[in-house]
Design a protein around this nucleic acid. Structure first.
Length: 470
RNA sequence: GGCGGGUUGGCCGAGUGGCUUAGGCAAGGGCCUGCAAAGCCCUGUACGCGGGUUCGAUUCCCGCACCCGCCUCCA
């Protein structure tokens, strides 16, 4: 069995067959960097990171392109409000985004192109569309260029929309459009817009329409046809519909699979900057929840399902992750971390079934239980095997507790040997007290350590300690 | 109005025409422990409502209710 993926275009789960055997090209719609990211955006990144890791683990060479849209209406609006150039605001948000991605263990993309770096490719596409009769420059001298929706009979195919039954836009048709559903490929510069957000074009100075940048970047980095295009469910229409229309009308076969992930809701509606119901990584960390625990929370449900954010569910996920982590740490203290090993069949089957991470984690927990039992029984070979397997499976999800990403305690890690020897001193005292059955003295040592944030526990192989809440 | 998705035990969340009906969190009981902690074992017994198909439906079909997303910037 091999990977089966849900494809939005056919509304079905299909066998994934790459265009070129052994190789996969993925384009993920990244962010418009109008403001810093919230955890809904991070869910998106984590979901496709899991897809990518699973493809890599399955033996594919993966080219992963995730774009940054660094110029659009909102970027301009927000930068005007902030009184800084649009590129300063965009870049500042982009850096925050990168930081949050890396804190969540999201692998760096193969390349991360920016819209503003691909104006010439957009011009090429637009010129082709105009000469083939799929686009037209506005006749009002605005320098706008519009895509002619009626000229492309498959318009609406991806999202299942029938253009004729669509609700008319509230703001009414723009005069320059032949049809209210036509969308801008190129937006002519307005008098009040900053010159640094304008580029020359054969149709006049202006900037890209919203969708054209993705068509241009897909084409540039993945070629006329590629394997997987991903993004949030809220992008299906109009963004992806318009993207596929303009690309195919320009003669590019485009994406073979459309993968869309479910959204993250807060308070009964989609987490959204414009609605103000937003939670970001810093506020999650302020709850005492670590990034790896957030990653578990975001990765555990199947990617197409809705997540209704709640702090309770987040904390439950953190507890579930700690259980796995606990096993991995105990086992590695016994006989070293080893290397990530074989995946169990249930895990593979679940992942191949449209990335059923929830089912896959069920398999992980089963192995953790077996590992714990083996550890308690002193069956070292079994326990070691369980550790390797758990690490291998968690690595696919980007959650291996012993990977360098998560295992180091950051800047304080260098202090660990120091603390270790100090705690050892205290534990010797406790051991002595226990030997003479002076339980009060033994417990006093343990209590003092607890007050200092050091949790001690007795195991079959002697006492061990951990930092409380790490 | 159009398109799509959802409703599973206290909570999160898979899944399936019956068979052993995941897994986690929380709860109760037990084992282990000097006491703990961690771990292990056991317990709860669920599939929005109403019809239909079927020997049998949580799972398939129809209807209804409610929720969410999209049709407008949005991961």
């Amino acid at each position: 069995m091999s990977l089966r993926l849900h494809d939005t275009a056919t509304r079905s789960v299909r066998d994934f067959v790459p265009r070129v055997p052994g190789e996969v090209g993925i384009y993920l719609c990244g962010l418009t960097v109008q403001s810093p990211p919230h955890i809904g955006h991070l869910r998106s990144a984590v979901n496709y990171d899991v897809l990518r890791r699973w493809l890599m683990r399955s033996g594919y060479r993966v080219t992963f392109i995730r774009n940054i849209t660094d110029v659009d209406d909102k970027v301009l609006t927000n930068s005007a409000k902030a009184g800084e150039p649009f590129w300063a605001l965009a870049y500042s948000n982009e850096r925050i985004l990168s930081d949050h991605y890396s804190r969540l263990g999201v692998l760096d993309p193969t390349y991360e192109p920016r819209a503003t770096g691909h104006i010439t490719e957009m011009h090429d596409l637009i010129a082709t569309l105009i000469s083939d009769g799929h686009a037209y420059p506005a006749e009002d001298g605005s320098a706008d260029v519009y895509f002619d929706v009626k000229s492309f009979d498959r318009y609406g195919h991806l999202s299942g929309q029938k253009p004729d039954s669509m609700q008319p836009a509230e703001d009414g048709p723009e005069r320059a459009k032949h049809d209210p559903r036509d969308f801008a490929l190129w937006k002519g510069a307005k008098p009040d817009e900053p010159v640094e957000a304008q580029w020359p074009s054969p149709w006049g100075r202006g900037r890209p329409g919203w969708h054209i940048e993705c068509s241009a970047m897909c084409w540039r980095y993945l070629g006329p046809e590629f394997d997987i295009h991903g993004g949030g469910l809220d992008l299906v229409f109009p963004h992806h519909e318009n993207e596929v229309a303009q690309s195919q009308a320009a003669g590019l076969p485009f994406a073979r699979f459309w993968v869309h992930h479910g959204l993250l809701n807060l308070g009964g509606s989609k987490m959204s900057k414009s609605d103000g119901n937003v939670i970001d990584l810093p506020s999650i960390m302020a709850l005492g929840v670590r990034p790896v625990e957030l990653r578990y929370y975001l990765a555990a449900p199947q990617y197409r399902s809705v997540i209704d954010y709640s702090e309770e569910a987040l904390r439950e996920a953190a507890s579930a992750y700690r259980r796995i982590e606990n096993f991995a740490e105990r086992a590695s203290e016994r006989f070293g971390a080893g290397e990530p090993g074989v995946l169990c069949a249930e895990f593979v089957e679940a992942m191949d079934d449209d990335l059923n991470t929830s089912g896959a984690l069920g398999a992980v927990h089963d192995v953790v239980r077996e590992g714990n039992t083996a550890l308690a029984a002193g069956e070292d070979t079994t326990a070691q095997g369980a550790l390797a397997s758990v690490r291998g499976m968690l690595d696919v999800l980007g959650l291996d507790p012993l990977s360098p990403q998560w295992s180091s305690g950051g800047s304080s890690e260098g202090l660990r040997p120091v603390v270790d020897s100090l705690v050892a001193l205290a534990l010797e005292q406790r051991a002595a007290a226990r030997t003479r059955k002076d339980w009060a003295a033994a417990d006093a040592v343990r209590d003092r350590l607890k007050q200092a944030g050091v949790v001690t526990e007795d195991t079959a192989h002697g006492p061990r300690w951990t930092i409380e809440g790490r």
